[in-house]
C-alpha cells in the first residue's frame, strides 16, 4: 500500500525535526560554550518581549475579571472573584496565552533571521570563520527561549493579577493587600508548579521549531517568509499539544 505524498512529507519533517532536536542536546553539552551569545539572546528574546507580554497580561487579567463578575454574581459568590481569576491565570490562561504571544514574536523572528542568514550564506561564512553555527545560532537561541519564557510567564501572571485587582475595583472596593491575601491563600503548590514546569517545554518547543524552520530554509526570500510563517503556526500548535499532555500528566499525578 502506497502512503499519500503529504503523509510521507509529514513523516520526513517529523524525522528531520527529531534529528535536529537530538543534535541540539548533543551540541548543548559539548564545549565550546557560547556564553556571551547566550546572554545576548536572553536579552533579545526575554527583555525585548517584556512590553508586549506585560500589556497583554494586564489586559488579560482585567478582561477576565470583568467577564467573570456577572456569572459569579448570579451564583452569589462575587467575593470569590480574585480566587477564580487567580486560578485561571496561574494554572492555564497565563502560561498558554503568554506562550502563544511569545511564539508569534520569537518563533517568527528566529525563523526569519536564521532563514535569511541561510540564503545569504552567512551560516556558511560562520563555519568558514571557525565557528560552529549550530552552537552559535541554534543552541544559544533555544536555551534562551527555554529559560526566558518561564520568567516572562511569571511576570505576566503578576501583571495579570494586578490587572484583575483593578478590574475588581471597577465595581467594588478591595484593597491590594486583601486581594493578594485571598489569591495566595487559595493557590496551592499543585496549582503553581505544574504550570511553571510546562512553560519550560513551551519555551523549548518555540525555540527549537523557530530554529529548525529557519536553519533549513531554502528557495530564497520566498523560503524565508515561508519559514517564518510555518515557525509560528507549528510552534503555536505545539503549545496546545504540550498543554494537553501536561494536563493529562498532572491529572494522573493527582495534582489537579
Amino acid at each position: 500500500m502506497r502512503m499519500p505524498d503529504s503523509f510521507n512529507k509529514y513523516l520526513d519533517e517529523t524525522g528531520a525535526t527529531s534529528r535536529f532536536t537530538y543534535r541540539y542536546f548533543h551540541e548543548l553539552v559539548r564545549p565550546r560554550y557560547e556564553i556571551r551569545q547566550f546572554l545576548r539572546q536572553c536579552y533579545l528574546i526575554g527583555y525585548t518581549s517584556l512590553p508586549l507580554i506585560g500589556i497583554t497580561g494586564f489586559i488579560m487579567g482585567l478582561v477576565l475579571t470583568i467577564q467573570l463578575r456577572p456569572s459569579l454574581i448570579s451564583y452569589g459568590v462575587e467575593s470569590q472573584l480574585p480566587v477564580m481569576v487567580a486560578l485561571a491565570i496561574v494554572r492555564e490562561i497565563g502560561p498558554v496565552i503568554t506562550a502563544l504571544i511569545f511564539a508569534g514574536k520569537i518563533s517568527s523572528s528566529i525563523g526569519a533571521e536564521l532563514g535569511s542568514m541561510k540564503v545569504t550564506e552567512q551560516i556558511d561564512a560562520m563555519e568558514v570563520s571557525g565557528t560552529n553555527p549550530f552552537k552559535y545560532l541554534v543552541v544559544t537561541r533555544v536555551a534562551a527561549s527555554t529559560l526566558m519564557l518561564p520568567v516572562l510567564v511569571m511576570i505576566s501572571d503578576a501583571i495579570s493579577l494586578y490587572g484583575s485587582y483593578l478590574g475588581v475595583n471597577i465595581r467594588g472596593n478591595t484593597s491590594l493587600r486583601l486581594f493578594f491575601f485571598q489569591v495566595f491563600q487559595t493557590l496551592q503548590f499543585g496549582d503553581v508548579l505544574p504550570a511553571f514546569i510546562k512553560t519550560f517545554f513551551f519555551g523549548f518547543a518555540i525555540g527549537i521549531i523557530g530554529c529548525y524552520k529557519g536553519y533549513n530554509s531554502s528557495k530564497g526570500t520566498e523560503g524565508v517568509g515561508r519559514s517564518a510563517n510555518s515557525a509560528v503556526v507549528v510552534s503555536s500548535l505545539m503549545v496546545f499539544i504540550i498543554d494537553l499532555i501536561a494536563v493529562q500528566i498532572t491529572d494522573i499525578l493527582g495534582l489537579n
Binding site: M117, T120, E121, Q122, D124, A125, M126, V128, G130, T131
Partner: peptide, 25 residues
C-alpha cells in the same frame, strides 16, 4: 573564502564582521 553574496553578518558592524573570524581562529 569570498562568498558570492558577500555573506556579511548584517547584525554586526563592519568592525565586528572583521573581528569575528579573528576572535574565533
Amino acid at each position: 573564502f569570498l562568498f558570492q553574496s558577500n555573506a556579511l553578518y548584517d547584525s554586526m558592524t563592519v568592525k565586528q564582521n572583521l573581528e569575528f573570524p579573528m576572535r574565533r581562529h
